[in-house]
């Protein structure tokens, strides 16, 4: 009897079991003590994708806003960062130090200079929006890896042409040169 009542009271998401895991099952980003051992280039602000995308479940396209309409994925403007961080100051001294950098940048009107990780040479064109259209809005991890659990982003796929062509062959789409090289 009690169990029936409890079932009504529990949040529907648990009964359906899909979207938001129960509080105890949600991903919590680890505390990072040794940044030197992390893969990927050091960025001017230690932006944690595992906290923002993994723990806080912010969708990729909240920040990388043009990925579904343009070949460029879009880099979040400092206003996007400051939108939350004007209020969110950070829960640990390490977090607070990094967030202070965001606030200083906004005050001084100097956006941070991020180090680029994924770069194609100038003679290859990659249209993000075509791939998102074909593979869906949750497909970012296919090429960029498990960014939701990366404290510091690093390149996972080789991005070399053979890797692109393999996927095109698997999905039976065009391998014509002038689709990407023009």
């Amino acid at each position: 009897m009690v169990l029936w009542i409890l079932a009504f009271l529990l949040p529907p998401a648990v009964l359906y079991g899909q979207q938001a895991p129960a509080a105890s099952q949600r991903y919590r980003a680890p505390v990072v003590k040794d940044t030197g051992s992390l893969e990927g280039p050091r960025q001017p602000i230690f932006f944690r994708h595992d906290i923002h995308a993994g723990q806080d479940q912010i969708p990729c396209m909240y920040c990388h806003y043009s990925a579904s309409v343009s070949s460029e994925p879009g880099l979040p403007s400092l206003q996007t960062c400051f939108g939350c961080h004007q209020l969110i100051g950070g829960s640990t001294p390490e977090h607070q130090a990094e967030i202070k950098k965001v606030r200083d940048a906004w005050r001084e009107k100097k956006p941070p200079e991020w180090v680029r990780i994924h770069a194609l040479p100038g003679f290859a064109r990659f249209p993000h929006m075509r791939h998102i259209k074909a593979l869906g809005t949750q497909s970012c991890a296919t090429c960029h890896g498990d960014v939701q659990h990366m404290p510091q982003v690093y390149q996972v796929s080789t991005l070399q042409m053979g890797w692109c062509v393999r996927c095109h062959v698997e999905h039976k789409v065009t391998r014509d040169c002038t689709v990407c090289h023009y």
Binding site: S66, S70, E72, S77, Q79, K109, V115, R116
Partner: peptide, 21 residues
């Protein structure tokens, strides 16, 4: 290999411009 590039975001995103379009 291409040298490392820097990506510098906007301070405030202009409303009428989408990068890449």
């Amino acid at each position: 290999p291409e040298p490392t590039e820097k990506l510098i975001p906007y301070l405030i995103q202009p409303e009428d411009q989408i990068p890449g379009t």
